[in-house]
């Protein structure tokens, strides 16, 4: 009897945790469908009026464009950096391999304030402050370690002799990369790009430190309105971010077995 109870308690705990993780997001999104002028849950009627308002507001649209430009740059930077590093880690032996790998992952575990604040100096000195690029570089610090993780799982799963066979048949290292490796790990590359996109589109503290009103991304516009003017328009903006994030994550899950990210033996 006790064992059965314990088992139910165990599952109940997991379910409660899932509710804890999901409920705030679900509420935030539901609010955005309210027909009311005030933020409240839509009870009988649903409306897209706030989404309409969002897409008709030039300020919001501009922030959306900025967000997309920054996210695009983030994808490019973190894919180049992450792909090269993942190839190095998975195809070569380093003396301090595990240590370097662990160090490479540290930015992702570093809070955004610290990254944003410390990058101010470089941003000023290089004259990049306020531009899309410097925000994208900051976001890449969070994104490229994830790209490395995703690609490494994939690369280590490839049969090495396939690449050797290609070399042996006359392919140069570059040909091996784009004729063999790239097509085979394509889905993971897409997953890496999606992660980079999701991170960049949602991040706002680094964007706050490093951007100006010209390069205001969506979360930056949400922030003050959230503090002073809680309108359903903000909910619509949040809803759009959530939608993009959830779709991106589900697409990633389809493209790649995300389980492998935690099941993969990091100490190998």
């Amino acid at each position: 009897m006790g064992a059965v109870l314990r088992k139910y308690a165990w599952h109940a705990f997991a379910i409660l945790m899932c509710i804890y993780f999901l409920a705030p997001m679900v509420i935030a999104v539901l609010m955005s469908f309210t027909p009311s002028r005030f933020l409240r849950l839509p009870t009988d009627k649903w409306s897209l009026r706030w989404y309409e308002a969002f897409f008709n507001d030039p300020k919001w649209m501009e922030s959306l464009t900025n967000s997309l430009v920054v996210a695009g740059l983030t994808i490019v930077i973190s894919l180049i950096v992450g792909m090269a590093a993942a190839l190095a880690f998975s195809r070569f032996k380093f003396k301090w391999g595990t240590t370097i790998y662990t160090l490479a992952l540290t930015p992702v575990f570093t809070p955004a304030v610290i990254i944003g604040m410390s990058m101010l100096g470089v941003a000023y000195q290089t004259g990049m402050w306020g531009g899309h690029l410097i925000i994208a570089i900051a976001h890449s610090l969070w994104a490229f370690p994830l790209v490395i993780m995703v690609l490494r799982v994939s690369l280590d799963g490839l049969d090495r002799s396939i690449e050797e066979a290609a070399r042996g048949m006359g392919a140069s290292p570059f040909q091996v990369f784009y004729l063999i490796i790239l097509p085979l790990i394509g889905p993971s590359v897409l997953v890496g790009a999606l992660f980079a996109f999701i991170i960049s589109i949602n991040e706002f503290i680094m964007a706050l430190f490093l951007g100006t009103s010209e390069t205001e991304t969506m979360p930056r516009v949400i922030y003050p309105t959230l503090r002073y003017r809680l309108t359903p328009l903000v909910a619509a903006a949040s809803g759009i971010l959530m939608l993009v994030t959830v779709i991106g994550l589900l697409a990633s899950a389809r493209l790649m077995n995300l389980r492998r990210l935690v099941e993969y033996n990091r100490s190998q």
């Binding site: 997001m25 991040e203 979360p219 949400i222 971010l241 994550l249």
Partner: peptide, 10 residues
């Protein structure tokens, strides 16, 4: 991965 403002406000 979500926006933390959305989270806090939810």
């Amino acid at each position: 991965l979500s926006n933390m403002l959305v989270l806090v406000y939810g």
